[in-house]
Design a protein around this nucleic acid. Sequence first.
DNA 1: CGACTGACAAATATTGAAATCTGTCATTCG
DNA 2: CGAATGACAGATTTCAATATTTGTCAGTCG
Lengths: 196, 196
Amino acid sequence: MAAEPLTRDRVLDAAEDTLRRFGPAKTTVVDVARALGVSHGTVYRHFASKAQLRDAVLQRWLERMNPPLEAVAREDGPAGDRLRRWLLTLIGQKRQRAREDPDLFAAYAQLSQEARGVVVAHLAHMTRMIAAIVADGMASGEFAAEDAEVTAAAVLDATTRFHHPAFAAQWEDAQWNDTAAFDPVWRLVLQGLAAR
Amino acid sequence: MAAEPLTRDRVLDAAEDTLRRFGPAKTTVVDVARALGVSHGTVYRHFASKAQLRDAVLQRWLERMNPPLEAVAREDGPAGDRLRRWLLTLIGQKRQRAREDPDLFAAYAQLSQEARGVVVAHLAHMTRMIAAIVADGMASGEFAAEDAEVTAAAVLDATTRFHHPAFAAQWEDAQWNDTAAFDPVWRLVLQGLAAR
DNA sequence: CGACTGACAAATATTGAAATCTGTCATTCG
DNA sequence: CGAATGACAGATTTCAATATTTGTCAGTCG
């Protein structure tokens, strides 16, 4: 074993690799320990249960979605344009993950059905980013809304069909490859936000 | 056996009863035949497969949701009010079914994941009803929309979270009992539709 | 002392043989 | 003749035994 003591992060790395390799159904704590060259008891010094380990892997994986979204949120230009780009970026990220990491994505889809902690935190972060854009739009007089947070949650709700993993199966359908289904919803949302 | 020859409808009745009693997982074609007092081969004279029988039961069950919705669609008054009532009726129907027929509802939830024929037809019908209300709103100058059908589909998409069975688990949560989550989305939709 | 091990009990998953179910069809019945 | 039967093959499900996995903890090691 290494001279270095085992860190939480190294365990997470090994767990993510193993998960990607064997899939969520076939990954055991012993597999993860073996990848690290330690006994499985040691893994339990860093995570209280297999569920917590899986949640932590998932959280890190979800958090990697944030930087591109934060970049869009910080851009210049009309709030409406930024919001549209932000939503399209979110949708794009989800689809990319569904394609590239089908196993991790399936685990995420399952957890979001159960509305578990990690996913709730993820959603809260998404809402906060939208709220920042909405608040900018309110400040510039472009949007008329009462409460940026509540409105942000409504925007996320209204576009559920396009980013919630329960609908991932439909993302492959031909008719979804372009924004034909998204655009009419986007029109509703943008005009719903617009000051008049 | 009865003097009457066995009808498709009597098979459907028996299948629905059996399904309700045993649940989708435990219902066999033999069970349905037994409830009718015939051999299971006879059931196959009316439905080509178990899947077709299940789809037909589900279709009838879904169609029973239509009358109250059609009643709302035919009411008088501003299109905005009618559309809101229609959506709340749809949401109410779904929740009622989720509570009263959990097994049939679970079967429906499963099928809508796979976007199967019955469900696609059901969705198309829902869209047509909304389109009628939207068209009325356009005629009266209350709404500004380009295409009533496309807009209707967008309204259904934007409210997915509140009527799609994938979210049924959340319908029981305290925060969903009132319209606290629905109202902000409704505001977005209504203002998105409104002529200015 | 703190990081790690590995034997252990209880929970969970796997397996394969037996039972049941689906769908077909030659035959019976009225 | 059309409606219904029931025996049958192949597919699927069940069930109980067997094996693996999770999570704990007393004990080892440096």
